[in-house]
């Protein structure tokens, strides 16, 4: 299992109703369904991913979440998950508001643009960072809204969003004790569990 998903799965309690936004090939939902008896759906727009979800028995709904989630009623889900996709949204703040409206709690993961490597790249090379983990150049990247941990937490304060749990990992999705000394500098991926 993709390592960030491996960390998230422990934050979903058994038997819960889950919505996974941009669910990819359905790996997380498949695990949550078979190991934790979770129900729910994935939303996805990639044709191959959708077919793969269907083949796995994961309930997947073809839907572009940029078009909004208005058709879903308040508090329909126990947990709404979005992994590594918040930075590609047109309006991440609106998506987070919507996730918190339709779900009792949310799990969000995103790459930390405040990581020392990204800072160093821009500071010393004077160019937007390109790395194995962030392989795109500025003109073709789907990542239109990068943020740092600090930025994200500031948004949470502004919107009265309560951070239940957070963890940071490196690019191999490993916890390292030293990351927690200075997460915004040393953590590459942020994983937040939030509620209103």
């Amino acid at each position: 299992m993709r390592a960030d998903l491996d960390l998230i799965k422990d934050w979903v309690e058994p038997g819960k109703r889950v919505l996974d936004l941009c669910c990819g090939d359905g790996e997380l939902l498949h695990y949550l369904h078979s190991e934790k008896q979770a129900s729910g759906y994935g939303l996805e727009i990639g044709p191959e991913n959708i077919t793969e979800c269907i083949g796995k028995g994961v309930n997947v709904i073809e839907k572009d979440i940029e078009e909004g989630l208005a058709s879903i009623k308040d508090n329909t889900f126990d947990t709404v998950i979005m992994t590594q996709a918040i930075q590609i949204m047109m309006r991440p703040d609106e998506i987070i508001d919507e996730m918190l409206r339709i779900g009792k709690e949310c799990i969000v993961t995103f790459p930390n643009f405040g990581h020392w490597r990204a800072r160093g790249y821009l500071a010393f090379r004077g160019k937007m960072p390109v790395s194995k983990f962030l392989p795109y150049t500025w003109y073709n990247t789907p990542n239109t809204h990068f943020c740092t941990f600090k930025d994200f937490e500031r948004l949470c304060v502004e919107r009265n969003i309560y951070i239940m749990e957070r963890t940071v990992v490196d690019n191999e999705h490993q916890h390292r004790w030293w990351i927690h000394l200075w997460p915004n500098m040393l953590g590459e991926i942020a994983i937040y569990r939030i509620t209103k």
Binding site: R17, Y41, I50, I54, N59, I61, E62
Partner: peptide, 19 residues
């Protein structure tokens, strides 16, 4: 079709949808 899907989600039914 989305109206059907939305109703099924609302009713907590197992549904997949492809466009």
């Amino acid at each position: 079709s989305r109206e059907i899907v939305d109703a099924l989600v609302d009713a907590d039914k197992q549904v997949s949808y492809a466009e």
